[in-house]
């Protein structure tokens, strides 16, 4: 019973991180139809920035987090306007190649300035203090991550379902040409969605640095994981990505706890089965 609870709590915390980093990827893939392999790079850049701010300048965690996320947005906006705008028109393969090139340059930049060692982010000591939930004692960090994940998914849900921007976004995802002909400024929607995705990746990357440690090769190392969340969740689906990220988090954690020898094999066999049965993702409407 205790083991089951541990698996669920750890798996959910892990899943929340996966969700926050992958959701931007899911939205850009669903909206712009672009295979953006550089998405994890935004988590890396956010994490590297937070590392510098907390360790070299001694800035407290919360302001460092906010500044890093803002810095990533400031970088993502011109990147979208100048580079990605052209990549949207490319064929799928050229997109893969172009975004791999961008990942390489991001990795090399971090490597040039900070080296290829682990880049820890200093958090206030209270974050690692244990909290007794009655049935289980776990670090405060896990609880913060879970709460942050819930806040993000709620905010995103409200943004997409309840605001004018959400209507524009959904219209552009469903049919870009029709949306544009109805007077929706789709390039601006693209820009906003791209920047939002990058910001969330940075946010998730920094919060999740304890589970997925930040280092120069981060975007390549975890690229497969993020893409799997998108594939299982279904491109462009927020709830799908959320369910997929939590299930994959729990599945992976369960595999590690219960079948330490063949956990990874089990994980990927499960992914294969899901994708073979639901090639468009768990919850996606069949088109």
């Amino acid at each position: 019973m205790t083991v089951a609870l541990s698996i669920v709590v750890d798996g959910i915390a892990y899943g929340m991180i996966l969700f926050m980093i992958s959701i931007g990827l899911s939205v850009t893939m669903g909206l712009m139809r672009i295979v953006n392999l550089a998405h994890g790079g935004f988590a890396l850049l956010g994490g590297a920035c937070a590392h510098v701010l907390t360790n070299s300048y001694g800035i407290p965690f919360i302001p460092a987090l906010l500044v890093s996320v803002m810095a990533v947005v400031v970088l993502a906006l011109p990147l979208e306007r100048l580079v990605y705008r052209h990549i949207y028109r490319f064929s799928e393969l050229e997109q893969v190649l172009a975004t791999i090139g961008i990942v390489f340059i991001m990795i090399a930049s971090v490597n040039l300035f900070l080296g290829s060692t682990l880049l820890p982010i200093r958090m206030p000591p209270v974050v690692s203090s244990p909290v007794d939930l009655g049935f289980k004692v776990l670090p405060l960090h896990r609880i913060i991550v879970i709460l942050a994940g819930l806040a993000v998914v709620t905010a995103l849900y409200l943004l997409v379902e309840r605001t004018r921007f959400g209507i524009y976004l959904r219209a552009s995802v469903d049919n870009q040409a029709t949306a544009a002909s109805l007077g929706i400024d789709t390039p601006k929607v693209y820009l906003a969605a791209f920047a939002l995705g990058a910001a969330l990746a940075a946010f998730g990357g920094i919060l999740g640095a304890e589970l997925l440690p930040i280092e120069a090769y981060y975007p390549l190392r975890y690229m497969v994981l993020f893409l799997i969340v998108v594939a299982v969740g279904g491109m462009g689906s927020i709830i799908g990505s959320f369910v997929a990220a939590l299930s994959l988090g729990i599945l992976d954690t369960a595999g590690r706890y219960l079948l330490p020898d063949i956990g990874t094999i089990f994980f990927f066999l499960a992914i294969t089965a899901v994708l073979a049965l639901r090639p468009n993702g768990l919850l996606v409407k069949s088109s």
Binding site: L227, V230, A231, M235, T264, L269, T272, L275, A276
Partner: peptide, 14 residues
Amino acid sequence: GLSLLMLSIAVTMV
């Protein structure tokens, strides 16, 4: 598309 990419990665990982 994407599920083909992911499936082929999964096979290799297994």
